[in-house]
Design a protein around this nucleic acid. Sequence first.
DNA 1: TTGTATGCGTTATCAC
DNA 2: GTGATAACGCATACAA
Lengths: 359, 359
Amino acid sequence: MPAKTPKRSSTLALPATRTTIADVAREAGVSKATVSRFLNHRETLLTTDIATRVEVAIAALAYSPSPMAQALKRGRSRLIGLVVADVSNPFSVAVLRGAEKACQEAGYLLMLFNLGNDSRRESEAIKALTAYQVEGLILNTLGRDAGAAADAARHGKPVVLVDRRHSDMQADFVSLDNVGAVRLGASHLVEAGYRELLFVSEPIRDVSSRLEREAAFRSFISESATHTDSTPGLQGRTFEATEEDTEGLDNALRSLRQRAGKRRPGVITSNAVVTLRVVAAMARLGWRFGADLGLVGFDETEWSPYVGPGLSTIAQPTDELGRLAAGCLIERLKGLDLPPRQILLSGRLVPRGSSVPTP
Amino acid sequence: MPAKTPKRSSTLALPATRTTIADVAREAGVSKATVSRFLNHRETLLTTDIATRVEVAIAALAYSPSPMAQALKRGRSRLIGLVVADVSNPFSVAVLRGAEKACQEAGYLLMLFNLGNDSRRESEAIKALTAYQVEGLILNTLGRDAGAAADAARHGKPVVLVDRRHSDMQADFVSLDNVGAVRLGASHLVEAGYRELLFVSEPIRDVSSRLEREAAFRSFISESATHTDSTPGLQGRTFEATEEDTEGLDNALRSLRQRAGKRRPGVITSNAVVTLRVVAAMARLGWRFGADLGLVGFDETEWSPYVGPGLSTIAQPTDELGRLAAGCLIERLKGLDLPPRQILLSGRLVPRGSSVPTP
DNA sequence: TTGTATGCGTTATCAC
DNA sequence: GTGATAACGCATACAA
């Protein structure tokens, strides 16, 4: 049992109070106003003599202005708020990474709020962040609490939505081109010879990206039905896979294969989480990817090449998305005044063994 | 080309200026001081009449105090800084998640700085964060820039180190029990019958966790050599695998198998990144886990069960680690004055097919 | 118990 | 060009 140290004195008892602009002024023998001017309006109004005196004083005291005080005075905090539905989601991490990088480069710091998949707390998050005078918000959330984001925007703070739209919100929107991506995956499966398709998604609820992807799949199927000559016998359905109901997924896959008959069955998964669920189901069923079931999944991951014969994926330009989100925001902060933009980036197909019908 | 909106008026032109304590005071017909007291010292000194008047005024105006102004006045910002070596690292994400959660519960917000694996920027990060008056710091970095963290601590700000120690720093330290975890993995491999072991790590440099794990492996081997009766013929070496030099890793594995002769060769990987490199090497070599090579890897991941015959792992209590890190910090913030603590959590072995020597 | 006045560190508006 | 001074929004010592 370690003895309790009676009194912890820091190695070098620095004054608890930080050095302020007043210290610099005193050191340089000028007024606070002059120091402030040197800091903010260096280009104009300054005697070189005084300028250098201030400069050395600043260096000598290792002074740096307090962002808090600056924020209080100017109203601008050089802070950007990021609300994330779930940091465990690899996609969110990518957004986080890109956004944080762009922020750093532009001299902003990121304040993070993770919803932990509890979307009801979205407005709480936005409230907390706006209280800290964040200059703008990046939202990667389910978007079910429309009011929350809306009143952030109403406060005049620019907002960028990533991946998931909020119902009728006036804000920039950065996302994958879901329609194109679904077509990419589905047509790849078709070209590889799979004819009975199943789109497996997380519970749609009202999440825009899930809605879009599912709708895109349905229309792909119905369009193909009209051009029956090019893809004879193509059929498709959809299924929502939850985390708990593994049996439901197993059954869905079994009946998929049954429906397929002597046609080949194929699955498109709507994100990496769902892909993993299907992988688990395949293990339970003892089926082989490619031969027994074709698969293309949204989201390229580090492990995609090494599961089964390699999983075919639709890679999202995640870094780009994150960077763009922050970039949009920073442009707005710099004064750009345009109507809300939509930036859609294309997905990229990464074909692997899971979509090769080896017999 | 969309027409430029000439003037974007928000749906409801709220006054750009936020409602302040003065507004509340006016609304309630009291002084600012009274409102402030109501907010901070509700329990003492208050006429119920006035209290309710203030209360309704606050509700009516939807007032909430400005944390920036509070920070300026009290010196406490309710902000915690988190510096992360690389947010892409799943372990860092787990820390992030746990820390963020604990912070939220304690009413703190997290300011994030990602080093993007550029450890030279550590002091820059700490400087930026302390400028914002963060009350404490959580550091999950390589810890090569000892000075940086040290002067944060010298400023009187509590610091918690996660996973990686900084050379001789006075700070709380939260980490996996690396020695125990290595033994867990190594002895599992031995018990399964593997006798020629290789510890594969990222370049050690001076990263404390890598050093500890490697040292633990070496001493495990040398100790076993003295008890030669229980594990006859046990041998072990170490190897540093870089991202680029895939050929080097392939060769290391080949010579491992050669050294093994008719004894079984086994590998311990020091984290998930390295595990993936070994997985890739195995694919290149056309070897099978378990039969051709035993494997136990640090870090349990979502994909561990589905690669090859399933990868045996040493799971870290990542959530716990993150929560504990933030918890330590918050305790310090509440005034706890104890000498620096070390909190070591045990790893847990998750045995799977990769350590079963099926012939 | 409540109000008045001051200061936190900064920037901006005045005079000089 | 430069220096006092007020104000940003809040908390608190002090006076009432």
